[in-house]
C-alpha cells in the first residue's frame, strides 16, 4: 500500500533510535551489570524468602488493583460519557489527579486516612478491619494511582460507539443488562484490557505512595521496589540489580502476554468495530 506520509524506513529507524536511548540501553545496562556479579551472588540475592513474599504481594496487589480499576474505571467512563450533570468538567479533570500528585503526598494522605485513628480507619477499626500496614492498604494505594488508565482508555471508545446499535438490540427484545453483556462489553473489552494492563504495569513499579501505608513489615507488607531501595541504602548494588532483573523479566512476560491478548482481541473485535463504522 502506497502512503503519502514518511515511509517505513525513516519512521522505523527513528523508533529504534528513540526506544534504544529511552528503554533498551538502560535495561541492557541493568542486565549487564547483574551478569557481572556472578551466578552465586545472583542466586544468593534471589533465593530469599523475603523477596518471594514481596514478589507475591507486588504482583497480587497490582493485579487486584488492576481488576478493581477495570470495573470502576468502566463505570466512571460510562457516567462521564453518557450523562450530563453539574460539575462534570471538574470531575473529568479530577480523574487525572493521581497522575499529577507526587506519589509520596498520596501515600501520606492515604495513610493518615486509613490509620487506626484516621477518618476512615477509625470507622473500620471497630469492625475488626485494619487497612493501614496490611496488604489491603497496599492494594488501596495501588488502586489510587492506577485509576486514570482505564477511564482514559475506555472513554474515547465508548464515545465513538453508535447508540443505534444499543437501540437495535433493545428493539429486538434485549433487556438493558443483556445489551450491556452482549453488545457493549464485547466492544469495550480491548480498551478495558489495555487500561488494566497499563494500571497493572504502573502498580508494579510504584514505590512512593505504597511505602507509607504498607508499614513495610518483612514477609508481610514489603513490596519489591522497597526491597530494592533497602539494598541500595545498604550499598548492595549487586543485590538491588539482581532483584530488579527478576522483576523486569516477570513484568516483561506478563505485559507481553497482556499485549498479545489485546492484539488478538482487537483483531477479532476492534478492527471490525472500526471497519463497519466507515
Amino acid at each position: 500500500m502506497k502512503r503519502t506520509l514518511p515511509g517505513f524506513p525513516l519512521s522505523f529507524g527513528f523508533m529504534m533510535f528513540y526506544m534504544s536511548f529511552i528503554v533498551f540501553i538502560p535495561l541492557i545496562a541493568l542486565v549487564w551489570y547483574t551478569m557481572g556479579i556472578g551466578w552465586e551472588a545472583f542466586w544468593n540475592a534471589i533465593f530469599d524468602p523475603r523477596l518471594f513474599a514481596a514478589l507475591r504481594l507486588s504482583f497480587s496487589a497490582s493485579f487486584i488493583a488492576a481488576i478493581i480499576n477495570g470495573v470502576f474505571g468502566l463505570l466512571i467512563a460510562w457516567v462521564l460519557v453518557r450523562y450530563d450533570f453539574f460539575g462534570k468538567r471538574i470531575m473529568d479533570g479530577m480523574i487525572d489527579l493521581p497522575f499529577a500528585l507526587p506519589t509520596a503526598v498520596a501515600g501520606i494522605a492515604l495513610t493518615s486516612l486509613y490509620a487506626e485513628n484516621g477518618w476512615i480507619g477509625s470507622l473500620l477499626a471497630p469492625l475488626g478491619i485494619q487497612v493501614a500496614f496490611t496488604p489491603i492498604g497496599v492494594t488501596i494505594a495501588l488502586t489510587f494511582i492506577g485509576l486514570p488508565f482505564v477511564v482514559r482508555m475506555v472513554e474515547p471508545v465508548l464515545r465513538s460507539l453508535d447508540q443505534e446499535t444499543e437501540e437495535a438490540a433493545g428493539l429486538l427484545g434485549a433487556s438493558p443488562f443483556t445489551i450491556f453483556k452482549t453488545v457493549l462489553l464485547p466492544l469495550l473489552t480491548p480498551a478495558i484490557l489495555a487500561g488494566m494492563t497499563l494500571a497493572f504495569a504502573r502498580a508494579l513499579g510504584e514505590y512512593g505512595s505504597v511505602v507509607f501505608i504498607a508499614g513495610n513489615i518483612p514477609m508481610q507488607t514489603e513490596i519489591v521496589p522497597l526491597l530494592i531501595m533497602n539494598k541500595l541504602e545498604q550499598f548492595d548494588y549487586a543485590g538491588a540489580t539482581a532483584i530488579a532483573t527478576v522483576m523486569l523479566a516477570l513484568s516483561f512476560i506478563l505485559l507481553l502476554g497482556a499485549n498479545i491478548l489485546q492484539w488478538w482481541l482487537s483483531r477479532n473485535l476492534g478492527q471490525k468495530v472500526v471497519d463497519s463504522s466507515r
Binding site: D162, S175, P186, L269, K272
Partner: peptide, 19 residues
C-alpha cells in the same frame, strides 16, 4: 417499552452488531 412492542426496526446506518 420499546423492547416489549415487538417491532422490527431498520436504521439508516444498519446498526449491525459488528462483533
Amino acid at each position: 417499552n420499546a423492547k416489549d412492542r415487538n417491532v422490527g426496526f431498520v436504521f439508516q446506518h444498519y446498526a449491525l452488531f459488528s462483533h
